[in-house]
Design a protein around this nucleic acid. Structure first.
Lengths: 335, 335
DNA sequence: ATGAAAGCGCTAACAG
DNA sequence: CTGTTAGCGCTTTCAT
């Protein structure tokens, strides 16, 4: 370890071949120099096990072939899946991924994004937690950025994948309404940190229209975060007849809580989610949710960024429509 | 975007303050220079929104504060969770994470690890797919590496978190044996790519001891990967009475397949997993599995690396013991 | 206490 | 086709 047999450099190849570093640099990239030189250089490079130093390249400027992916919270199963899908999609374009996780803290997002940019990522894919704080103008000016379901104040975007939250929320609330539910608890994350999330606004508006009594409850992300809260909500005297979780991960925690309390879903209470994680059809009972195709989302987001990097400044915005998926976790309101 | 208002550099601060870059460099790190200078420099730095360029630092040498995390496949839910846990743990130590995903391809692992090293990560956390190929000696010599459940040929390790696969497999097979199962299909991933995985060896040995008829079946990772295969296995004339999945994600796909075929678990067939993903207690039926505490694993792995980086070359090896978790997906073998 | 200069590995003008 | 030179932003001798 301390021995540090350093990695081979372009300079060594230059010495070995008797060429200048410049010539080697070109040869390695197959430019300008003669075919014979290219071959000779390649041979030495292979033999030395040379590969260009990405850090030096990055410092010099130019593309790094790496994209920064920033997600709101990897504690959320759906976002885990999204991150994987995005990464996979990037790979099909020959791009590497650096994944960063704001871990539920909106204040952290800008700092993390800045750090990714400082690492010279060629572009940024951001799935923000909520209305992120800070001024993204400077950052997005220098680093092409595509957002996934969220806004970045001041940002100049290379692309945008929006989710039609209004329709999604509307369909779900109408579904619950049609089942006779009138008092509904809505579990959402990061409410305090970013109080004006469009999803919650949509909930309030649609609830008003339908005449529903919706209480929005702040909730930690994820399974373990939502369970204790769910217990609290479930044990109230005036327990709601349905719980609408703004992420399936939250719903999982609620299902867990229901089980602990001996509550039958959906007989005693309905529980629904909002992103349709792949496992939602396998949990007990299968979770009613709203699907936003992860594949389409990932493909669109990556496509926008790749197009942009290729110089295409076309129309880079798409709205993903929700697909309501009714399963067994929602049923008639108990009378 | 092309306008490129570059990020502030140390040089700009030097000009603003009338100092030399050297002095500024020291001042920013609070070294050598006078308190007054430090303050003056800080003020200008803050005002300019300066932060050190990590790329330049990396090129120069020295620590980058970033750790590379390499996992075998992010398509696997458990590994997603592990990655998150590790990342979180690193963060408590003030370390940043670059996450890379071999996506089920053992041949890719060494290349990805090399790339992370080239990015000047301070250390590497590797959860390999199976007996990885290639020679890790050179890499691990230069970059401190901790493995999580797996071996790296030739590697000189800064630490090792091993899983006691033998005991884990043994307990599960004995559990199935005691329920009367004799013909068991074992679904594993990456069998072809790395035929001698210790887990599978353990399966063969323990099966022989118990007199079980265990067939090891190659299986793509994850939910969607295992479902078609499961269907194939389930529709055989001589269907096994139990399916032992070497990862819970695989088991989820099998459960899905069973449902499609109208097979009741565990009445018609038992299905068990092997890593106890947090959702395994929530699926239908709750999955019998073997738990390797993710938190302990993450904490140990990160702890080893941090210790090592701090100069502590103590004993950096731990074996995580399995905890058998019997739930409802395993029952008596159908007669 | 501060500054000048070298260098990390690579690429890109600009010669020849 | 190939070499010289400069420079990306930072840290670190070595002087002053």
């Amino acid at each position: 370890m301390a021995a540090t047999p350093k990695r081979p450099t372009i300079k060594q190849i230059a010495e070995e071949t008797g060429l200048s570093v410049t010539a080697v640099s070109y040869a390695l990239r197959g430019e300008r120099v003669s075919a014979a030189t290219i071959e000779r250089v390649q041979a030495v490079a292979d033999q030395l096990g040379y590969s260009a130093d990405p850090v030096a390249r990055a410092l010099r400027g130019g593309r790094t072939g790496t994209i920064g992916v920033l997600v709101g919270s990897l504690a959320d199963f759906w976002q885990q899946t999204l991150a994987h899908a995005v990464q996979r999609e990037l790979r099909t374009h020959g791009l590497h991924t650096i994944l960063a996780d704001a871990d539920g803290d909106p204040a952290e997002e800008l700092a993390l994004a800045a750090r990714l940019a400082a690492q010279r990522v060629d572009g940024l894919l951001v799935a923000p937690i909520g209305p992120a704080g800070g001024d993204w103008a400077k950052l997005t000016e220098r680093t092409p950025t595509v957002t996934i379901s969220g806004r970045l104040p001041g940002a100049e975007l290379a692309g945008e994948v929006a989710f039609d939250q209004t329709t999604g929320v509307g369909e779900m609330l109408r579904h619950l309404h049609s089942l006779g539910h009138r008092r509904i608890a809505v579990l959402s994350w990061a409410v305090e940190a970013s109080p004006d999330r469009p999803t919650e606004r949509a909930v309030r508006e649609q609830a008003a229209t339908l005449g529903l009594d919706c209480e929005i409850v702040q909730c930690a992300y994820s399974l373990d975060g939502s369970r204790p809260l769910a217990l609290e909500v479930l044990e109230r005297a005036d327990r709601p007849t349905a719980i609408f979780c703004l992420s399936d991960s939250i719903a999982y925690g609620v299902l867990h809580g229901c089980r602990e309390l001996g509550l039958q879903v959906p007989r005693d209470i309905s529980v629904v989610g909002f992103d349709d994680h792949p496992l939602s059809r396998l949990v007990d009972p299968p979770l009613t949710s709203v699907n936003w195709s992860i594949d389409r989302t990932a493909r669109a987001a990556v496509g926008f960024l790749v197009d942009y990097l290729a110089g295409d400044r076309g129309d880079h915005r798409v709205v993903i429509a929700p697909t309501m998926v009714v399963r067994d976790s929602s049923g008639p309101a108990p009378s």
